[in-house]
């Protein structure tokens, strides 16, 4: 893929140019690092990955699916948003890829598509794993960006990954210089990010070690909320107190780690034990999604571990799982 050179002192100039054409979303440091609309390019924080994932911008935590008045249904206008996302790591770009598979390929989700189709993804490559919980190198990640920025000490190298990226490179051509350099596959590997050992976990479905993941579990659902790929949701209706015939059907994130997730009429709960629910999450991330989409859902960002109040480390648990006899 084509590579351009961006001098370090020109990064802010590039961001400012972007700001003229897009709403720019970038990692900013506040209480924690979050992807937020950017005002001043100096505020961009690239020292560590964002604590919260990017999914909120496309697969919203709360989405009005439609309004209703009696049995009449009014679908809201879904204007597309021209946004440039800057500073997305390889894990987060792949998380977008996997959610694209679900919401734009498995089904045509008009809400996700409207939020996603005019977004421009500008990645920032990790030269080393930014967190001790990272394990993206153990997963099957691919190039999925419009532009990718590599920090090469003296300069940035910018790789073009799509026609959208090509368009940006052309539009802001005055900022970039030509280079003969290429980004090798070796350079895309992130040192210190391969701590999840390769294993056929289907052999461990009945292993007693899954319990290790649940002895400490508080069923808070932080793991699924912070996961950039988790896409489970529920819907519910809200009515106006002034007229109960009018209201909205809303979609919210939900969590497979909670008992409510499977509760049916008659109060029956499937996967009643935390152990079953924990195992289900890991199997969905590493196995089930792959059966259908040829790639694991998990992108190895480590947020579910870092954000867990009791630091349940499923990577550690899997690495230590041994074949049991009988």
């Amino acid at each position: 893929m084509e590579v351009l050179l961006l001098k370090k002192e020109r990064l802010n100039g590039f961001i400012e140019k972007l700001q003229q054409d897009f709403e720019v979303i970038a990692p900013l440091k506040g209480d924690v690092i979050r992807f937020l609309p950017l005002k001043n390019p100096d505020d961009i924080f690239l020292g560590k990955n964002a604590y919260f994932p990017i999914k909120e911008y496309f697969f919203k935590k709360n989405e009005v699916l439609f309004q209703f008045n009696g049995t009449k249904i009014i679908v809201p206008e879904l204007p597309s948003k021209k946004r440039a996302f800057f500073g997305l790591r390889r894990c987060d770009l792949n998380a977008i890829k996997h959610q694209d598979m679900v919401f734009m390929n498995d089904i045509h989700d008009p809400y996700y598509t409207a939020a996603r189709k005019d977004s421009y993804l500008i990645g920032y490559h990790c030269n080393t794993a930014p967190s001790p919980y990272c394990f993206c190198g153990s997963l099957e990640l691919a190039d999925y960006f419009d532009l990718m920025v590599y920090d090469k000490k003296d300069d940035f190298l910018v790789e073009i990954g799509s026609s959208k990226g090509k368009g940006m490179a052309k539009k802001y051509a005055s900022l970039f210089s030509k280079t003969s350099k290429k980004i090798s596959e070796e350079e895309k590997k992130i040192p210190g990010s391969d701590r999840l050992e390769k294993k056929d976990i289907s052999l461990f479905y009945n292993n007693s070690d899954w319990k290790k993941g649940t002895d400490l579990c508080l069923s808070c659902g932080a793991c699924t909320a912070l996961c950039p790929t988790c896409y489970c949701f529920e819907t519910h209706d809200e009515v106006k107190t002034s007229n109960i015939n009018e209201g909205e059907r809303k979609r919210n994130w939900s969590s497979c780690q909670l008992q409510e997730f499977t509760r049916v009429a008659g109060e029956h709960v499937y996967r009643k034990d935390r152990e079953e629910r924990f195992k289900h999450r890991i199997f969905h991330q590493l196995e089930y999604f792959k059966e259908k989409h040829k790639v694991p859902l998990c992108v190895g960002c480590g947020r579910c571990i870092e954000g867990c109040p009791t630091r349940i480390d499923f990577v550690d648990i899997l690495n230590n799982m041994k074949v049991e006899n009988g």
């Binding site: 089904i107 489970c232 969905h284 196995e287």
Partner: peptide, 18 residues
Amino acid sequence: ERLMYCAMGVCCHCMIRG
């Protein structure tokens, strides 16, 4: 029988072993 919301294989509530 499972709890389900979307009925299109997306919301994941009705998943049984993938």
